[in-house]
Write a protein that binds this DNA or RNA. Sequence first.
DNA 1: CATTTAATTCACTCACCAGTGAGTTATTAA
DNA 2: TTAATAACTCACTGGTGAGTGAATTAAATG
Lengths: 246, 246
Amino acid sequence: MRVAAAETIDQKEANLASKAKTLAKRPTKAEQRAEMMEQILDTAELLFSQHGFHGVTLKDVAKQVGVHHTLLNYYFDDKRTLFDAVFARRAVVTIDKRMQALDDYERAAGDNPTVEGALHAFLDTDLDLYIQGGEGWKNYGAFGAQASNSPEGAEFMDKYFDPVVLRLIAILKKALPDAAEEDIFWGYHFVTGALMLTLARTGRIDKLSHGLCRSDDYEAVKARMARFMAAGFRDICNQRRQDRDG
Amino acid sequence: MRVAAAETIDQKEANLASKAKTLAKRPTKAEQRAEMMEQILDTAELLFSQHGFHGVTLKDVAKQVGVHHTLLNYYFDDKRTLFDAVFARRAVVTIDKRMQALDDYERAAGDNPTVEGALHAFLDTDLDLYIQGGEGWKNYGAFGAQASNSPEGAEFMDKYFDPVVLRLIAILKKALPDAAEEDIFWGYHFVTGALMLTLARTGRIDKLSHGLCRSDDYEAVKARMARFMAAGFRDICNQRRQDRDG
DNA sequence: CATTTAATTCACTCACCAGTGAGTTATTAA
DNA sequence: TTAATAACTCACTGGTGAGTGAATTAAATG
């Protein structure tokens, strides 16, 4: 297996990993295969996140990995399969973590969950992954944001993310027992829109604020988002209740 | 000039328009030219909004309009020019309206603008356009949302929308004089994320809510969004002030 | 060492795309 | 009526895309 010619952003990570391996023991065939596939997935993830499904060619990916382009057809049958594999690889991780966090929160909160608590569990768990997970995870975030409003990604979005989202919504309903169901769904819609834009890292806020805020400053988002959105939820749900009760 | 073979969503609009014209007077050459270009722009708008720049071919557009594909090269030099023309056509309208609304609001509010008032001016003006402007405007919304996180659209976003956004932010600062500047920028970031997702009409909220909420129900968004976001703004800005003042 | 199997490349195919320039038809203007 | 111009079509080109199957190289196994 040949080492990548082009140097990806994950270069340091990769070097460390392979160094550790060679010192420890020669990698098995399965390991090598897995590593090659990961390299392809990493690169595809980055490129798809930047240009979308149609804006990336298999040759683009292959070139950046440093292999012949038909090798991608060898490992992943076709372009679509590769795209789906990128989507699936990390989806399970973030979903499991968030599901776990929501379970934990609900157990801890007992009969009195709060909107803010639920949102912290949902959002912070995810943001931590992007904060701590290195460039790969950041790229996946952008990939997901890109995929979420493309026909290619929409079905995956539903398939993978519906359970967590409905889990969150169930807790929100418990936290806001008097709220209209629509208000909760629309509130979630606002939350996810804001989150998607964050993950997309468009660089727009950097320019608008003349560098005061940075698109990739997930810490800043984490420090504000759950609280911001919780206030919004409380407000529209209260309004509705007031309107209804007269 | 040949009438479109394929029937677009705007069919009714177009029929009405052309009927009115034939009754009134024969259209001039310039009018015909303008109409043809609009038809191309409408179709390109729709397709770009669904599949992005690279997901659409000039043949796709031409086929749906019902003309030979090289005609698009005749009216618009190349694909990129067509894309830019789609972007520019309606951008000025929404920007002018919003700028006007913000001016009006600031004048009316005098020395005491509120976050909610400013957001109403900014958001409702825009949403009204999509509510009242018919399918064409709805498609433009989705087009903009798609474009906003693609390299092809990013520069346009800055070029066209920066002034209105900075105008909004200026009023928000006035409404929240004690707030940290970062908080206001991040708040705006959340607002625009939510708005973009709304305009994208992904259909996701429909499925999640089993039809209770609909992606294209801009009225529902208008009824909630400014208020929701204003509450968020107030909350994080208060928190910051409390943290600072101890 | 020989044989099988996996990994990788190579030479192609077929389809399609953006764009061009010549040619054709219709309008308009002189 | 003719000349000129605009609107539109056609045939084509150079280039690229995804994907295939044969060939080659490398690795593992008996």
